[in-house]
Write a protein that binds this DNA or RNA. Sequence first.
DNA 1: TGTTTGTAATTAACATGTGAATTACATCTT
DNA 2: AAGATGTAATTCACATGTTAATTACAAACA
Lengths: 145, 145
Amino acid sequence: MLPPSTRRSLPMTLLRAREVIMAHFRPMLARHDITEQQWRVLRVLAETGPLEATELAGRASILPPSLTRIIKALEERQLITRNRVKDDGRRALLAITPSGVALIEDLAPERIAIYEAIEGRYGAEQYERLLDMLESLIQSESSEG
Amino acid sequence: MLPPSTRRSLPMTLLRAREVIMAHFRPMLARHDITEQQWRVLRVLAETGPLEATELAGRASILPPSLTRIIKALEERQLITRNRVKDDGRRALLAITPSGVALIEDLAPERIAIYEAIEGRYGAEQYERLLDMLESLIQSESSEG
DNA sequence: TGTTTGTAATTAACATGTGAATTACATCTT
DNA sequence: AAGATGTAATTCACATGTTAATTACAAACA
C-alpha cells in the first residue's frame, strides 16, 4: 500500500473542507468582533445551559488552555458569567448572559441562510449523509474505541 | 429552519473528525520532533518537487505568514533549501533536502500502518466514499464555484 | 527616467493549538 | 490531623491561525 498523496489524505481533506465552509462564516463573525471559538462557546452555553469548564471544553472542542483565555475574554465583554460551585472550590459554572444570548440570536438568521446556501449547492441529502458519515468516523475512532 | 445544534454543525463535525484522526499521528510526529504543518510541507515538497512559496502554501493548506515561519524552521534544520529565482528577486524555489526525504521515508511505514488501521475500523469503501464526498464539498464551495 | 500599479513575501499584533508543568483544591489513607 | 494521591484549572513556552500593514521587487506607463 502506498501512502496517500497529500491531495487525498484524510486529515488534509478534512482541513480543506472545514476551510471552505468557514470562509462563509468569517465575515459575519468579523462584523461582530467575535472569534470562531468564542462563538462556539457561546452557542454551546446557549444550547445547553450553564456548564463547568471541562464539560464546555469537550462540547466546544476547545482545549483547556485555550478555554481559559476565551473565558477571560468573554467574561470581560460580559457575554458570560462564572459562578463558583459550592463544595468544590476548583469548579465554576459558566453561563451565558442575556447579552450573549442576544448576540447569538442576532447572528442566527444569517447563520441559517449560510447553511441553507451550502445545502443548496451541495444537496441536502448529500449534506445529511456526509454528516452521518463523519459522525460514524468519529465514533469508530474515538479513544473509547 | 432551525440552526443546527453544535453536535450537528458541519464545521464542528469536521473539526472533531480531523481531531480523532490526527490523534493517531501525533505520537509519531512528536517522536521525530516535527509539527503537523512541517510534516505537511515536507510531504508536499517530496511529492511535487521544488515549489515557490505561494504554490506550496496552497498545496499544504497553510497561510503565507505561517509558511514564512515554517520555512525558517525547516531551513534551520536543513530539511529544506531555498534558492532565489532568476529574473524575479521576490520568489524563491523551495526544495526538500536528502535529510528531509529521509525523514519522510522514515515515517512512511508507520504512516501507512495508521491509515490501514483507520480504514480497517471504518471500512475501506466507506473511507473512499467519505473522501469523495469531502472533495465534492470542497469543489462545490470553492470560491471559483 | 521616474511614477504608478500590481504582486510575492514578510512582519506585526493578537487569538488559538498543543504538550508540559504548576497551582488549587478534594479525596483517600493511615 | 497529616501525608499521599487524584482532579480541575491555570500557566508557560512555543507553534500556528488570522487579518492588516508593510516591504521588496516587477511590470506598466506617462
